[in-house]
């Protein structure tokens, strides 16, 4: 078991009222799964993904990740955990504008204390694998959306995480670019055994996954 959510609740207080963002979420994810989360806008998909990614907290319930109980961990430990095992892919790519493609790819490695030569090799490998060697010295603004997202995925993968969390990774892409990214995910999942949880609005993209999770008003349906 990779991770397990038990009776997760998350709420905010607004005007004396408790508004639930997540309500009694239960979820088990095995290694090697490819899960798609779907639901209307505002249903809590991103919130759930962020909770899984440990970027956001929750108010009630239990969360175990690789047999560590995340809800009892200190902030720093939690950061170490996601640093090591989780890669993020964002709808709006979130590349650093001031860094080139190559430097963007290198950054997660810097925070994981890889040696210089090692980093170079890993970055070169990724550039190769994603066919973007020719773009390595360009800045994000000089790339198309699809290319930027490619870099985003490459960056998420570079430190070989166990789990990839992707929040509407194709939201800003056209259908051809979307298909490319989805194929990539599928390949990663099937050939490298990377666990993937993605949020998507498209039935077509969701079909790439092995399991679909539907949310409505913060509840699983």
């Amino acid at each position: 078991m990779l991770l397990e959510l038990n009776n997760i609740f998350k709420w905010v207080n607004s005007g004396g009222q408790r508004i639930f963002l997540l309500k009694d979420i239960n979820l088990q994810v095995e290694e090697g799964e490819f899960i798609s989360i779907m639901g209307p806008s505002g249903s809590g998909k991103s919130t759930l993904l962020n909770v899984i990614g440990m970027l956001d907290g929750f108010d009630e319930g239990e969360y175990n990740f690789l047999d560590e109980s995340v809800h009892t961990l200190k902030e720093k430990h939690r950061a170490n955990l996601y640093k090591e095992y989780i890669g993020f892919v964002f709808q709006s790519y979130h590349l650093l504008d001031e860094l080139t493609v190559q430097e963007n790819l290198e950054m997660p490695l810097l925070y994981k204390k890889y040696k210089g030569a090692e980093r170079k090799a890993m970055v070169a490998d990724m550039l190769d694998r994603f066919n973007i060697v020719g773009k390595k010295d360009l800045f994000p603004a000089q790339l198309s959306g699809g290319q930027q997202q490619l870099v985003g995925v490459a960056r998420a993968l570079i430190a070989s995480p166990k789990l990839i969390l992707a929040d509407e990774p194709t939201g800003n892409l056209n259908s051809q670019q979307s298909a490319e990214i989805m194929e990539l995910f599928k390949k990663l999942n099937q050939e490298d055994g990377v666990t993937i949880i993605q949020v998507t609005h498209s039935e077509k993209n969701a079909a790439y996954g092995s399991r679909i999770l539907k949310l409505l008003d913060g509840r699983k349906v």
């Binding site: 996601y82 590349l95 950054m107």
Partner: peptide, 13 residues
């Protein structure tokens, strides 16, 4: 802010 957010998700303390 954006840079900070990204760096943090990529593992910066």
């Amino acid at each position: 802010a954006k840079e900070i957010g990204i760096r943090k998700t990529l593992g910066s303390s």
